[in-house]
Simulated scan of single mutants.
Amino acid sequence: MNEDFYELLGVSRDASADDIKRAYRKAARKLHPDVNPSEDAADQMKKVSQAYETLSNPEKRRMYDMGGGTGGFGGFGGGGASFDFSDIFDMFTGGQGRAQGPIPRQRRGNDILRRVAVSLDDIVFGSEAEVDFRTAVACTRCSGSCCEPGTSPSRCSTCSGTGHVQRVTQSLLGQMVQMAPCSVCHGHGDVIENPCTECSGHGRVQQKRTITVTIPSGLENGTRIQLRGEGEVGEAAGPSGDLFVEIAIEDHDTFHRDGTNLIARITVSMVAAALGTTITLPTFDGDKEVQIRPGTQPGEIITLDGFGITQFRSDKRGDIHLDVDVEIPTKLSREQQDLLRQFADARDEPDVAEAPRNAANEPRTAGRKSRFSKLRDRLRDL
């Protein structure tokens, strides 16, 4: 009694050709003798293969659906079998059942990653930096041929230049032929009898290189710049990999970065804050005069527009934000104390020395958010 081919493959009668092929592959993985050596599996494998042979052929499938199909299970033979036996073989050989020709000696080189330290000044306006590294470069003696000058590779006699040899194994399915890389030429199809004495037959040597890298303005810390083709040269002078330069921005003594803005803290005396003054601030554009208006309060922000970091791929610049810190003297002479008391009396203020201590007068404790972190938060809320 003939079995239903669709049921054998576990597909519906309107299954597509791709569905049928997937179902056959799935079944073959379970029933192939190399996986399941039982006799029942071998018999079932023959049935599944016959079903696939019929349903994968549009004409045979049409005749089968009309009731005049090719019933019975005649094994893998059968005149005019339409399925490719290598499909199932490739599942167990990783696709190595058929040779793809000699393996090229040339291979792409590896990518290289190098870190370069740059100053904040370099990021403000953009700059250049030199990167030193050792890498593989093409051998100048053999020009990447891997052979001594005046010689050339010879055809491998073992594989006749194909790079592969046949291996025949026996299974319940009969003889199976597997193509494997030639062990003599390692799949290249030719043999280097006189390797280059400079590169030992690799077509590349190690050498120190120095490359000048353009550092665009506005880059963030950790940004990687890709330089195509500046990496390691491949075997047999194959295509070069890429060079990746990672930017490490050094800390600055005065400024902290916040995007394209620069933050700095300036300290003025309480008298200067009360009466107003002018200070000189060193910036990346030179010294700038900063006006401290009378009555400036601690924590007040003074902004210098357009003196920050130049945006990436733009001429627009950020700003400088100055956080004003008013310095309170910690040691006063008796004369200075008397003057301050006279000032307090003139303003009808209580004697500071007699004021009780409270939470507002307590010294700052450790563990609080840093001053610059709080300043960034304030600036973003503006």
Rank of each mutant, 00 (worst) to 15 (best):
E3Q: 14
F5H: 03
Y6I: 00
Y6H: 07
L9Q: 00
G10P: 13
S12L: 00
D18T: 10
R22P: 01
R22C: 05
Y24K: 06
A27R: 14
A27P: 04
K30F: 11
S38L: 08
E39T: 15
D40T: 11
D40P: 02
A41T: 09
M45T: 02
V48I: 15
S49Y: 13
A51W: 04
N57F: 00
K60T: 01
R61C: 06
M63H: 13
M63F: 14
M66Q: 13
G67F: 02
G69K: 01
G69W: 00
G74Y: 07
G74N: 10
F76D: 14
F76P: 07
G77T: 09
F85D: 12
F85W: 08
D87I: 03
I88D: 15
M91I: 15
G94S: 06
R98A: 15
A99W: 02
G109L: 15
R114C: 12
S119E: 09
L120T: 03
F125S: 03
F125G: 04
G126K: 09
S127T: 14
V131M: 09
F133T: 05
R141K: 12
S143N: 12
G150V: 09
R155D: 13
C156G: 14
T158V: 11
S160C: 09
G163I: 09
R167P: 05
V168A: 12
L172D: 10
G174Q: 06
M176T: 15
P181N: 04
C182H: 02
G187M: 07
H188L: 06
H188V: 13
D190M: 11
P195A: 09
C196N: 13
T197C: 04
T197S: 07
C199Y: 08
R204Q: 15
Q207C: 03
V213E: 02
I215L: 06
S217Y: 03
G218R: 11
E220W: 02
T223I: 04
Q226W: 02
R228T: 11
G231L: 08
E232Q: 14
V233S: 15
A236W: 03
S240F: 06
G241W: 12
D242S: 15
F244I: 14
I247E: 08
D253I: 07
T254Y: 11
R257K: 15
T260H: 10
I266P: 06
S269R: 00
A273H: 06
L275A: 10
I279V: 12
G286I: 00
G286Y: 00
D287E: 08
T296G: 12
T296D: 08
P298L: 05
T303E: 08
L304T: 01
G306T: 06
I309H: 06
T310C: 08
S314A: 15
D315Y: 03
K316L: 13
R317P: 03
I320C: 03
K331Q: 06
R334Q: 06
R334F: 01
Q336M: 04
Q336R: 05
Q337E: 07
R347K: 12
R347C: 15
E354D: 13
A355T: 12
P356H: 11
A359G: 10
R380V: 05
L382S: 07
